[in-house]
Design a protein around this nucleic acid. Structure first.
Lengths: 336, 336
DNA sequence: TTGTAAGCGTTATCAG
DNA sequence: CTGATAACGCTTACAA
């Protein structure tokens, strides 16, 4: 049935007929045990909420499927212990591992990973160990976006940060700060409020900024979910976006281009990130690189997706930047 | 190590110490083979795009995790063959199966499912076989929403349908039609355009309606993703929502409450649907119901989540209905 | 080309 | 309480 050896055609037909009759399907565990190959990739995530993880999974699944692999998913792992537990539970059940744990110290993370299984760490830059890493250029993206806002004339930028415990959030915040320094602008702490990457926290963050005596002219949310919340809050406060207060986000989740107004964001190829991670694993699996082969450490570049939600504070929009929309006349393809 | 038998404390400690030293982790496949229990639930989905599936997975994972199970996910299965393949590949790798295949004829679906594994079919109402089913009340939800729109005074309702091949889409369309019949309104075919549950198709659908000589006063999209696209299109057409054209959706994905304007939608407990399916499976697994026990066939009720995007065509909003918002003063909890 | 036996890493059973 | 032994269902190597 596996076509692993030459067989008489008649015999094969007979076997196949009986197999069908018995509704036979091979037992995956037995198969995996014997051939030392499971046909599955393990995915360990901190969470499963929102379009970011949805897209990541989609990319992973897409690539895994090309190699007839499925995904063993385990989420809600916020500390090293939890990740270690999840990863151990996957031992012998997966051929490779994709781990994303932005709240866990990378050093401690490496300790809990089992050897012998090809592993890719997502967004765990700075890991020394012999493990593949693929990371989004968080700092670079935030830097570029902030520069863009400054170029538009914004001087008071309200930053809605993510949780301090989240490495991605910290890097984005650093990128933002770097751009301010670059422009010799002060790091005004009243212009940073901390959220937690949820829409609700973005909503609260925006409300905080609106209540300020001298409110910012633009809000930079450290992810799109919070930007969505911010847009909603500004609408509730009857403020026009971008005229009275602009909003930009980070991630460029699929819905961003369809928001009202369309959300300017730092485009991250989320699905590509997942697809790339899976491809890396599958390549290792297929080619069995000799021991000592150095791991890959890749940095996924970001791009600015300029849409309608950012404006210049004086109301003077710069068409070439703010209206750089659809490649094919359609919002869904409007990232640049 | 499994605490499956009384052991001398000293021996246990010694074993555990060596295990830790060797970084021992049991092989999942071997374990599964021997104890005839894998600790995983299989999830077969048509797709992985968008917040609907994200939420569904979240609910499934949440419940599975409570019982120390993980999720083996396989998506992109649109026909019976594909589903059959995916399901067979999971044989011996999962303890239970959750299958959602709205594009597959339920009868043909049952044929490809392997016996011996507890299975829950999602949104495959009308299956005769001895298999659990949990279905969203698609027709009921669409009926209720349409009635609501009629009560607001709308008489020309543009329906952005889903793919004709999708059972959920068809049921929602039927519910819409039933409400029209009920009100003795004609089924005007120019007031139905067909999309495919993506934002882009909703955008196109709305554009089609806007171009009509006698455009509808409200658009009812068969899912929220298309409603998001419609809102975007109306904005592009400089039409005020809901004053010039209202929009409502179906599913009530998490982002709906944060849209601009907040989207009125048929609330579906998506995560609950997933959690419920997982719970059903895990219960069967724990209690091993005797053969002959009838399967459960459950219908998940929907509720209207009335927000700002639906209005009365004359501009006379009915506060009690249109402003039934946040329970706790916050959009994220504003479903009713 | 076909049949047979060993082994994959664990758990379960059953004498000591 | 401990150690040995037979499954678990498949693949693979080797003998017929």
């Amino acid at each position: 049935m596996n076509a692993s050896a030459p067989v008489n055609e008649a015999t094969r037909a007979r076997v196949l007929a009986v197999a069908r009759e018995l509704r036979f399907a091979p037992n995956g565990s037995a198969r995996a045990l014997s051939r030392r190959r499971t046909g599955a990739l393990g995915v360990v995530l901190p969470d499963l909420y929102g379009e970011f993880f949805s897209e990541l999974l989609r990319g992973l699944d897409q690539e895994a499927q090309r190699a007839d692999h499925s995904l063993l998913v385990s989420s809600s792992h916020h500390d090293a212990r939890g990740v270690g537990f999840a990863v151990r539970a996957m031992r012998g059940r997966v051929d490779g591992l994709v781990v994303m744990a932005p709240e866990v110290d990378p050093a401690g993370l490496v300790d809990v990973l089992p050897g012998g299984v090809p592993t890719v760490l997502l967004n765990a830059a700075g890991v020394q160990a012999e493990i593949h890493t693929i990371s989004v250029d968080n700092a670079g993206g935030a830097l570029a976006m902030t520069r863009h806002l400054l170029a538009l004339g914004h001087r008071r930028i309200g930053f809605i940060a993510g949780a301090a415990s989240n490495a991605d959030a910290r890097e984005r915040e650093h990128g933002f700060g770097a751009a301010l320094s670059e422009a010799d602008l002060p790091h005004d702490q009243t212009l940073v409020v901390r959220g937690d990457f949820t829409e609700a926290s973005g909503w609260r963050g925006a409300k905080t900024f609106v209540a300020l005596a001298d409110p910012p002219t633009v809000l930079f949310a450290a992810n799109d979910a919070m930007a969505v919340g911010a847009l909603s809050a500004l609408r509730d406060s009857q403020l026009d976006v971008p005229r009275e207060m602009a909003v930009v986000g980070f991630d460029d989740i699929p819905v961003a281009a369809f928001l009202n107004p369309p959300l300017t964001s730092v485009h991250v190829g989320i699905a590509e990130l997942g697809a790339h991670a899976a491809a890396l694993l599958l390549r290792d699996l297929a080619e069995r690189p000799p021991p000592g082969t150095p791991p890959r450490h890749e940095l996924l570049p970001t791009q600015l997706a300029i849409r309608g939600s950012c404006g210049s504070p004086g109301g003077t929009l710069i068409p070439s930047l703010t209206h750089r929309t659809a490649r094919h006349g359609h919002p869904s393809t409007s990232t640049t």
